[in-house]
Structure formats: structure tokens, C-alpha cells
Design a protein around this nucleic acid. Structure first.
Lengths: 231, 231
DNA sequence: ACAAAAGTGTTGTGCATACACCCATGG
DNA sequence: CCATGGGTGTATGCACAACACTTTTGT
């Protein structure tokens, strides 16, 4: 089949959309090549598939090689395959979305690139079709977060209710009533209240919560209607 | 970059999951090769990407070439990329899901294959990883159908309330109360009642409805909670 | 006249929303 | 003591779920 010139073979790339939550803002991690080709162009973190690698494996490897992070929540979003998306040669890209705790990312391991967090609403011009990828990933995040409690992946182990509310407000571009929000979230039985307080945000301090790992029978549809006007 | 042997290039395939609704049952269209290789193995309808084709274009073309159908609802689902998924050579497959009106599909245009509709719960053993694709597609259909009124794509132009309720029951593997179901569905303002009746299913006959194309401001979250216990 | 499927209305309940005040603390 | 942000309770309305009977017509 491969001999048949009617059909084409292509390099396989993965690109990783990396979300983080920092200073109450939803951000994405972008990189910029310091050298040619594509010097100074911002793009998603990416790489090519190796010989015996699946895209899932490749995406995890790329993330690990660049950030040192392991065991991160990742999900395949969409494959981009326009024949001229990379003008130099045919490459299709399988895009992944991952959610990381920004505090765990320290520095890029690969010196050929520079990395920076961008507010999701202030993403610069990007290489190739990477801007579309950001849109697709963001859209996917909304849908996913409405149906499942994944946004905790963006927070530290311990977090406060005001923090997580701000996160939801960022993701859904909406404001929620704090009384209703906390009532619903706590009703999901997902959280365990700690004795400790975070005093950094206010004088009174806000109690820390943790994901309660016991809870497998959670009611999470609970957060759906917060959000579904926007799906 | 392509010279670098660390990275691999691969054939690009699309596979189409084709859903239909026939005799009150949700079905998928599968094909079987009559000749070697893979003689008599059931599989999804697929094909390879051509030189200047995107995956979207390729999927539409494949569908058209095999069924003659055009302008069908199609959506990219997921890309399958395990290196040995096709044991003869590396091929990655971008899977699409499409919804067609079974009455519009008459016969396979390509004589190398035989085609048959299978009840979704009675899919036979399939080639390579195609069984996983069916699962992914079905799952996707549920989520999509809960949020958007797409199941109409599976019905004829005119359809009755009992018909569409059976369709929803099939897709969500649940039973709905017909009074509540019709109230909700009609509240969405998506449907226009016709004067005509379908007498095939009962002596009394059921009124036909049609999608009302005017309605762009529909309330479709209306059908969400029918379904979201299952997403 | 009867069987078989279509169609229709009411009620209770729980959930989402809207809304305002007190609390704790650091400065 | 006061400014700042954290935390909590209640009342209202709406939407969902549960439920049973009447209508039509072909045989």
C-alpha cells in the first residue's frame, strides 16, 4: 500500500496545550525557539513521534522532556491535518491538552527554547495553525470541566474555596454567587476541609480544602448547570 | 527533519463510523472485504489520505466513494496511533463519526466490499482496533446528543414523536416517560407539527414533525438532564 | 367491540437562584 | 477600630419526575 503514490505518508507530531492557573488567571504555557528555523515564533510545545511510540506516549514524553513533569493529566483533543499546515513538509499534528499545577513547573529543560505563561485571552500570534489548537483546547476544557471535576488538576494539593471559584469563573468566563457555588461544590462530597487556613489572600484567612480521595460516588453533575448555558 | 530516522513517518488513514437508525434500533454500517488481504474481516469504512487532502476532506471523500452520500454530518472523534495497530506497516487512523438516514443509503459502490448494518450492541469482531473505535464513537455520540440536537440526522425528513423518543432511548440506553419527553422536546421549539400522520406504526397514527429551520434560538439544554446521569 | 398505540394534564418536590449580613483578623 | 475578604441561611419559583386515562381507528 505504501508503494502507492496516490497515498501519502507524513511525519507525525504531537503538540501539547498546557493549562495553568496563576494569579487568579487561566494561562497557557508557550515556547519560543531561539534559533532558526522559526526563530522567535511562539508555539505550543511539540515534538515528533518516534518509531514505536503511540501519540499518547509521545505526548507524555514530550511534556516530560521539556518540563520534567510526569504523570500529568493529558487528553487527546484533535488532529490537525491540512496538507500545507507546515509549509516545509507534510506533518500532521495530534493535539493534547494537559492541566498542570504551575508551581510544579520550574524551568524548561531544553535550552533551545524559551518558555512563558500567557493569559489565555492574551495569546500572541502563533506558529502554523497553533492558534486554532488553542481555541479547540479551550473549548474542550470548558466542556470537560462542566461534566467532570478536573480543574483541581490546576491547583495545588491544598486550595481554598475562593481560589477554586475564581478558577471556575475564569474557565467559564462567568461570575458565580459564592454562596451558591460553595453549597454546590461541597454537596458534591469531593472535598475535605482542613483545619489550616490560607492567610495570604485576606486577614481572616480562608480554609484549605483537599480532594477527598475516598469519594468515588461523587455527584458532580452538580456543577453542570453552572456552566451549561455555555457549552 | 524527515531525514532524521529517530522520527517516523506513517500512512494516514481515516475510518468512518456510520450510525443509522432502522427498525427502532441504533445501528452501525460495517463492511467486509471479499478478497485478500483481510478477507472476510469486518471493519469500519476507511481509506487513505491523498496528497493534498486534509483528514476532513478525506473522510468525506471516502464516505462519498463508498456510499454515494454527500453533505453528511461528520465529526472527527479521535486518532488511533499505536505503532503496531496495523501489523503490516505503520498507519495511523483518524476516526470520524457520521450520522446518516438509512433510507438514503442504498448500496455500496465499491464491489470489493460487502456492507451490512449491525445493531450497535451486536457488532461482530472487527479488524485491528476498530472495536475501540466503535466504543469511542458511541460514547461521543451520547455526549454530543445530550448537548445538541443532532439525532435528527438519523431520521427521515419527517418523523413522529414516538420515533424520535425510541431513538433517544436507544442512544442513551434508557427509557423516558413519553409525556415528559414530548413536553420537553416541544418546548425546545425545534419542531414543527405537520398535518400528516404516519399510520404505519399504529391504527390511530402518529403526527409527523419536521425540524423547524427558522429556529436558531432554540433551548436545547432542555434535553440535557434527560441524559446527563450518563455522561 | 376490542386491541394497540397516540396523545395529553396535574401535582409534589427538590434544586437553582437571588439576595444581605456577620465574622475574623491585620494593620 | 476599621477595612478587607471569608463565610453562611432563607425564601421563591421553576423544572423535573411521577403518575393514568382518553382518543383513534383497523380489524
Amino acid at each position: 500500500m505504501s508503494k502507492n503514490l496516490k497515498y501519502i505518508s507524513s511525519l507525525l507530531a504531537v503538540d501539547c496545550l498546557i493549562f495553568g492557573f496563576e494569579n487568579q488567571m487561566l494561562k497557557v504555557l508557550l515556547i519560543k525557539r531561539k534559533l532558526e528555523p522559526y526563530q522567535n515564533e511562539w508555539s505550543l510545545m511539540g515534538g515528533f513521534l518516534k518509531r514505536e511510540e503511540s501519540a499518547d506516549e509521545s505526548a507524555s514524553r514530550v511534556l516530560k522532556e521539556l518540563t520534567g513533569l510526569d504523570g500529568v493529566f493529558m487528553e487527546q483533543i484533535k488532529t490537525f491535518s491540512k496538507y500545507d499546515r507546515d509549509p516545509t513538509e507534510r506533518v500532521i499534528s495530534i493535539v493534547y491538552s494537559s492541566l498542570i499545577d504551575v508551581r510544579k513547573f520550574e524551568t524548561l529543560l531544553n535550552q533551545e527554547y524559551e518558555a512563558r505563561w500567557f493569559k489565555i485571552t492574551e495569546v500572541p500570534d502563533l506558529l502554523f495553525d497553533h492558534a486554532e489548537m488553542v481555541i479547540a483546547g479551550r473549548d474542550h476544557l470548558k466542556k470537560k470541566a462542566a461534566l467532570q471535576p478536573i480543574l483541581f488538576e490546576l491547583l495545588a494539593e491544598k486550595f481554598t474555596l475562593p481560589q477554586i471559584q475564581q478558577l471556575y469563573e475564569e474557565v467559564f468566563e462567568a461570575n458565580f454567587d459564592k454562596r451558591n457555588f460553595s453549597r454546590k461544590l461541597l454537596a458534591s462530597k469531593l472535598l475535605k476541609k482542613l483545619d489550616e487556613k490560607d492567610k495570604s489572600g485576606s486577614k481572616k484567612g480562608a480554609f484549605y480544602y483537599q480532594l477527598d480521595k475516598q469519594t468515588n460516588h461523587y455527584n458532580f453533575n452538580i456543577l453542570l448547570n453552572l456552566a451549561y448555558s455555555q457549552l
